[in-house]
Design a protein around this nucleic acid. Sequence first.
DNA 1: GAAATTTTGTTAATATTTTAACATTGTTAA
DNA 2: TTAACAATGTTAAAATATTAACAAAATTTC
Lengths: 211, 211
Amino acid sequence: MKDLPHKTIERLSQYRRALLLCLDKGKTHIYSHEIAKIQHITAVQVRRDLMLIGYTGTLRKGYNVKELIDLIGHIIDSEEGINVAIVGMGNLGRALINYFAGKRSKLKIVAGFDINPDKIGNIMSGVPCFSLDEMPEVIAARNIKVGIMTVPADFASDTANALVKAGIKGILNYTPKPVNVPKEVYLEEYDMITTLEKVAFYVKMQEEEES
Amino acid sequence: MKDLPHKTIERLSQYRRALLLCLDKGKTHIYSHEIAKIQHITAVQVRRDLMLIGYTGTLRKGYNVKELIDLIGHIIDSEEGINVAIVGMGNLGRALINYFAGKRSKLKIVAGFDINPDKIGNIMSGVPCFSLDEMPEVIAARNIKVGIMTVPADFASDTANALVKAGIKGILNYTPKPVNVPKEVYLEEYDMITTLEKVAFYVKMQEEEES
DNA sequence: GAAATTTTGTTAATATTTTAACATTGTTAA
DNA sequence: TTAACAATGTTAAAATATTAACAAAATTTC
Ligand SMILES: NC(=O)c1ccc[n+]([C@@H]2O[C@H](COP(=O)([O-])OP(=O)(O)OC[C@H]3O[C@@H](n4cnc5c(N)ncnc54)[C@H](O)[C@@H]3O)[C@@H](O)[C@H]2O)c1
Ligand SMILES: NC(=O)c1ccc[n+]([C@@H]2O[C@H](COP(=O)([O-])OP(=O)(O)OC[C@H]3O[C@@H](n4cnc5c(N)ncnc54)[C@H](O)[C@@H]3O)[C@@H](O)[C@H]2O)c1
């Protein structure tokens, strides 16, 4: 499973989300082309991904929704679950905590950190907010493995360093400023502006094509 | 320029962001390996991307920061700029508006839409909030081309339909529910959970490797 | 002033990802 | 019963994306 393509990992997560919705609707089986339709990809790709994880559907009946959800969970989730911390309890930080609050999942946001004394000590949607000083202890004590960064861009690099020092293993950086971490820390960066600019680019292209 | 690789488009947007920071610091030239370092990619890739857009640096001096920013702008920006609307002025919607407020860019969020009467009529960080009924007129009148969706997941599909009907050309969907749009509308979907699950997966993998 | 160095630009090779092709096999229907 | 169909699973091919290799040229060093 170690060498599943990166893209397949992402899609498995998405398949599961779609499958959970199907389960809620009472669907017990699903065809590859149904999953594909939802995700805007081809049925071949779905079947190929499922082949890679060794799941076999029933010919002419499709895939068993429940089984597949479980299998994907076995592959991408860590058995004991993974605890997550969020640094920067501002607009985006709070929005994310809020968003995750309802979801039952192997991923739990168990701590927040902020520099603002007014926020420290508060509990937001069930997540307690700590001071930066407390970071090393809290991260160790709560067995936190992943950190989400939603601090102002100017503090991006400091925050990344602090997280690394505290022993975090993976970082998701929502700051528009790329950071550097040791290679043993898995880093994912996402900037909303890039995505928006990409959409705008293709819209522009289509317009130019038409004219 | 039409056939630039998708990945190159994304990177150009990111290069520009990095270059703008350099400009602020008073840097006039930059080497490919410096850009690469910031973006966690290789210098070859940077040079190749720049080759694709036909930009030529100065041997041994690197690239002219200002020129490159301008060129990237010419390629990915639309000359007149593109107006953007955001549907769903909740936590995430407001966070996004806030985030964009400061940035000078060819992309402007010029309208928000919500179903909540308490929000309609308000102005948030300079963006006026309209009712859903007003969507067709507002989108036409303000020449809005791109829509960002930050409504509750259950309304994702309705919102996409409404945006398409109102004549939008590109959609960026932050809802965890994939939507369907006609093929002439460019659609990009982003779910934060996918990214977080991916980070968690690689953290898990690394741990298993170590043990 | 020649050699070494550094950096760009480009072509070629490699790696990854997606798509196509098709064999296989239950199921439906004539 | 058998032909047509609709689905999966897999191998092969094509398309995309990244990396390596190296020539060319400006700069520095000896
Ligand atoms: N709001 C968005 O939609 C959005 C989108 C993309 C990216 N971002 C980025 O996410 C980050 C946060 O955005 P926001 O809108 O939530 O900003 P915000 O100002 O609302 O929140 C920032 C929070 O970080 C805290 N903080 C400041 N310095 C800190 C430090 N050194 N350590 C810990 N906490 C610290 C502040 O007290 C505040 O609570 C920014 O870098 C922004 O560019 C935001
Ligand atoms: N908060 C996050 O960090 C986060 C992250 C990823 C995805 N999301 C997704 O983004 C969406 C919004 O999240 P949020 O935290 O901002 O939720 P929210 O409840 O704070 O905001 C939703 C807003 O949409 C409005 N709304 C409801 N129905 C509408 C309709 N039919 N048309 C227009 N507006 C409508 C509500 O009045 C509210 O203002 C959700 O789908 C959520 O799953 C949120």
